[in-house]
Measured scan of single mutants.
Amino acid sequence: VTTYKLVINGKTLKGETTTKAVDAETAEKAFKQYANDNGVDGVWTYDDATKTFTVTEMV
Rank of each mutant, 00 (worst) to 15 (best):
A30S: 08
F31T: 00
D41E: 14
T18L: 08
V43K: 09
T18R: 06
K14D: 05
A35D: 01
G42K: 01
G15Y: 15
V55G: 00
K11P: 09
K5Q: 05
E25N: 10
V55A: 02
D48R: 06
T54Q: 05
N9W: 12
T17K: 11
A24W: 14
L13F: 14
V22R: 07
K20Q: 14
Y34C: 04
M58P: 12
A21L: 03
A21Q: 05
K29E: 06
T18I: 07
N38M: 09
G15A: 13
A27P: 00
T12G: 10
T2W: 14
T17A: 15
A49T: 11
D37V: 13
G42E: 01
I8M: 09
D41P: 03
Y4F: 12
N38Q: 15
K32W: 06
K51S: 05
V40H: 04
T56A: 05
T17D: 03
D37E: 13
N9T: 07
V7Y: 09
D48Q: 10
T50C: 04
G42I: 02
A49P: 08
T52H: 02
V7M: 07
Y46Q: 01
N38V: 14
Y46T: 01
T50Y: 05
A24C: 10
T19E: 05
T12F: 14
A24E: 08
T3A: 06
K14P: 06
V1W: 13
V59Q: 13
G42T: 02
V22K: 07
T19A: 09
F53R: 00
T45M: 10
W44K: 00
T12W: 12
Q33L: 10
W44F: 04
K29N: 06
K14T: 12
T12N: 14
V43H: 10
E25A: 13
T56L: 06
V59A: 12
A49L: 08
D48W: 06
A24P: 11
N38E: 08
V7S: 04
N38A: 10
A49Y: 09
G39K: 08
D37H: 09
K32C: 04
M58V: 13
T26I: 07
N38P: 01
I8K: 01
D47T: 04
A49W: 08
V7R: 07
L13I: 14
V7D: 03
T50K: 07
G15C: 13
G39D: 07
Y34A: 03
Y34S: 02
K14V: 09
Y34E: 02
D23M: 04
T17E: 05
K51I: 03
V1R: 05
T2G: 07
K5H: 12
G42V: 02
A24S: 13
T3D: 11
Y46I: 01
E16V: 14
T19D: 03
I8P: 01
V22Y: 10
M58R: 11
K14H: 12
K14G: 06
T50N: 07
G39W: 05
V43C: 09
T45F: 08
L13N: 08
Y4G: 01
I8H: 03
L13H: 11
V40G: 02
T54C: 05
A35N: 03
A49H: 11
T56G: 04
D48L: 06
V1M: 13
E57C: 05
N38R: 13
M58N: 13
D23W: 04
N38W: 12
V1I: 09
L6Q: 00
T56I: 09
M58S: 11
A30W: 15
Q33S: 15
V1A: 12
T54V: 06
Y4Q: 01
L13M: 13
V55D: 00
E16R: 07
K20H: 15
T12M: 11
G39L: 06
E16P: 04
T19V: 12
T17L: 12
Y4E: 01
T19H: 08
V40P: 02
T54R: 05
W44C: 02
E28Q: 15
A30Q: 10
A27D: 00
K5F: 13
G15F: 14
T50A: 08
G10D: 03
T2E: 12
T56H: 07
E25D: 12
D41H: 13
L6Y: 01
V55W: 02
T45H: 11
D48G: 06
T3G: 04
A49C: 07
G10P: 03
T45S: 12
V22T: 15
N36W: 14
T12V: 14
L6S: 00
V1G: 08
K29D: 05
T54N: 05
N38C: 12
T12P: 04
D37M: 11
G10F: 13
V1S: 09
K32P: 00
T52K: 03
T52L: 03
D37K: 09
V55Y: 02
T56M: 05
A30C: 09
E16M: 13
V59M: 13
V40Y: 07
T50L: 07
V55M: 04
L13D: 05
G10S: 10
T26F: 07
I8E: 01
T56V: 08
V40I: 15
T17Q: 10
T50H: 05
D47H: 06
Y46K: 01
V22C: 10
F31Y: 02
F53G: 00
K20D: 15
A35V: 09
K11H: 12
N38T: 07
K14Y: 08
A21M: 03
Y34P: 00
F53E: 00
G42S: 02
K32S: 04
K5L: 08
V59N: 12
A27K: 00
Q33M: 11
V43G: 04
A30G: 04
G42W: 05
E25Y: 12
I8T: 03
T52Y: 02
K14S: 09
D41S: 15
V59E: 14
T50G: 04
T2S: 11
G42P: 01
T52Q: 04
W44Q: 00
A24G: 04
K32T: 04
N36Y: 14
K11R: 15
W44Y: 02
Y46F: 05
T12D: 15
M58E: 11
A27T: 01
V59D: 12
T3M: 10
N38L: 12
D37N: 14
D47K: 03
F31K: 00
M58G: 12
K29M: 09
D47A: 04
A35K: 01
V43M: 11
V59Y: 12
T12C: 13
V22D: 11
V7A: 04
L6M: 05
